[in-house]
């Protein structure tokens, strides 16, 4: 590795100190006077403005949608990092149980039967949480985690890797593009066929289902990567 020059290092340190001072100066001198508290702004007319009956959904899908975009990006980056780490020092080969197609020797019969019976109800409650996210507590993230729990409990019953993770990864990236594109069109550029409560609610449901599917695929990828590409 090449040694960096001493003067370049000194310039770097000076640059960092100066930039820290500039940021602190602007941060400490910045003040915005608002006519009313922020809480009143968020809770006064959110139903008319955003079409969501749940104030939390109104905040994370409309008023502060920029935060949601960065959160979705964070999940995408962590999934990519997990994929990157779990490939390291490993052969590009999947561990799979090929001899025995259905390996239920280590699993108890009770768990298999009970998970099979609970499965559809978990899927139902996950979908309900996603589609009712703008009305009742819940939303895309929570519903996506519940759906991922359903897929992960499938591992307890059927511990073979027959999922196509590659497809799931591409699907997640496409979903992230959609999650970025739709708020840009709806909120920032205000491209709407007609501005009404119904079109706003349609936007909420669409965003919630996209976020739910993205969280679902991201958490499933992380889990199946750790299970089949790490450890014994």
């Amino acid at each position: 590795m090449k040694e960096t020059n001493r003067s370049i290092n000194i310039i770097r340190v000076i640059f960092m100190v100066v930039s820290v001072f500039i940021v602190l100066f602007f941060f400490l001198n910045y003040s915005e006077k608002m006519s009313r508290p922020l809480m009143d702004y968020f809770t006064a007319g959110f139903l008319a403005e955003t079409g969501a009956q749940n104030a939390v959904a109104a905040i994370y899908l409309d008023y502060r949608v920029f935060d949601t975009l960065l959160e979705a990006l964070m999940l995408l980056v962590s999934v990519m990092e997990v994929i990157n780490v779990s490939w390291a020092h490993k052969e590009a080969k999947q561990y799979s149980l090929e001899e025995e197609l259905f390996n239920r020797k280590d699993n108890s019969e009770i768990v298999i039967r009970m998970v099979g019976a609970i499965y559809p109800f978990v899927l139902l409650i996950g979908l309900y949480t996603i589609f009712n996210g703008h009305i009742s507590p819940g939303g895309g993230f929570q519903g996506g985690v519940i759906l991922a729990t359903a897929l992960i409990s499938r591992y307890l019953v059927y511990p073979n890797s027959d999922l196509d993770l590659e497809k799931l990864e591409n699907f997640e990236k496409l979903l992230f593009l959609a999650i970025v594109a739709i708020p840009v069109l709806y909120i920032f550029m205000q491209v709407e066929p007609f501005y009404s409560l119904i079109s706003r609610q349609f936007y909420m449901i669409l965003m919630n289902s996209l976020i739910g599917l993205k969280v679902f695929s991201g958490l499933s990828i992380i889990f199946y990567r750790f299970v089949f590409y790490e450890g014994r």
Binding site: P137, G138, Q142, V145, I146, T149, I152, L156, F223
Partner: peptide
């Protein structure tokens, strides 16, 4: 309730199974 739902889904569901 929103945070409670997230905690129930993650803390009780996914992390226990993991």
């Amino acid at each position: 309730p929103d945070v409670a739902l997230a905690e129930a889904a993650i803390g009780v569901g996914i992390s226990t199974i993991m």
